[in-house]
């Protein structure tokens, strides 16, 4: 059963149309990569799922429920978490408080503590810095915090927008290892937008290539890696 289904989606920002007739399906427990040149609409697609872009037509289903018009803040309750690009943390809150924001609906202290420990185990650096302001963390640590927070709610679907952005190669490797663990250990379905294709293609299951607001290729990663379309994206021919 597909966890997420997108049918005939048209979306954009104000007058600008970005996505044209997107059709999309995510299988449970799989990691899918969304690739493509700049401006293709990858981030917009993620934002559409979270309803923070203007959707002009089309539908989005999550576990067969139509969530197209659901306001963003209700989606965590459904089991969708989002790690955005850009300002990804609450800078003036402590690391620990940032994590707590991911689970703020749960009032039972025990559950919260348990979850916190889980995340600390996965990302020990966060435990070390738990009392510090989020804005004082390095780029890589901030990324981990953002992911950690998204995981606090035990999401069924995790959306990530360019998690490797601005990270050193070593950190990128670490990052992708974490992401792999999330899928393998927790069975979380992951949709990740990435530019750093070399590394991600090795751990992802499926890939989509998005060009100018439309899906031009979709296949298992092992097949996609050798395809022509892939070569063009790699070389930057679509940019």
């Amino acid at each position: 059963m597909p966890l997420l289904e997108i049918k005939n989606l048209h979306a954009g920002y104000g007058e600008l149309k970005v996505l044209t007739d997107i059709n999309f399906e995510l299988e449970k427990g799989k990691m899918s990569v969304l690739m493509g040149p700049n401006g293709a609409g990858k981030s917009t697609l993620l934002k559409s799922i979270f309803n923070i872009t203007k959707i002009t037509s089309g539908n989005i289903y999550f576990e067969h429920e139509n969530i197209t018009k659901l306001p963003a803040y209700k989606l965590i309750g459904k089991g969708i978490s989002y790690v955005p690009q850009g300002k990804i943390n609450f800078g003036i809150l402590s690391v620990r408080d940032n994590l707590l924001m991911g689970i703020h609906r749960i009032k039972d202290a025990n559950t919260v503590e348990k979850k916190l420990e889980e995340i600390y185990t996965q990302f020990p650096i966060l435990k070390e810095k738990q009392k510090e302001y989020a804005f004082s963390l390095s780029g890589g640590q901030q990324q981990m915090l953002a992911i950690g927070r998204a995981l606090m709610s035990s999401p069924k679907l995790l959306l990530m927008d360019e998690p490797s952005l601005g990270l050193s190669p070593k950190l990128v490797k670490e990052m992708f290892q974490h992401i792999k663990n999330i899928r393998d250990n927790f069975g979380t379905t992951i949709l990740v937008v990435e530019h750093n294709l070399k590394s991600i293609m090795d751990i992802a299951d499926e890939g989509y290539i998005l060009v100018q607001g439309g899906v031009i290729a979709h296949d298992l990663c092992c097949n996609l890696k050798k395809s022509d379309a892939m070569k063009k994206v790699f070389v930057g021919e679509f940019d």
């Binding site: 923070i52 803040y73 989606l75 965590i76 309750g77 943390n89 609450f90 809150l93 707590l100």
Partner: peptide
């Protein structure tokens, strides 16, 4: 804390529910 979060980053706050 939630109010501080909203004050700091209202967009992000939306996505954390």
């Amino acid at each position: 804390k939630i109010m501080r979060a909203v004050a700091d980053n209202p967009e992000l706050a939306k996505t954390t529910g």
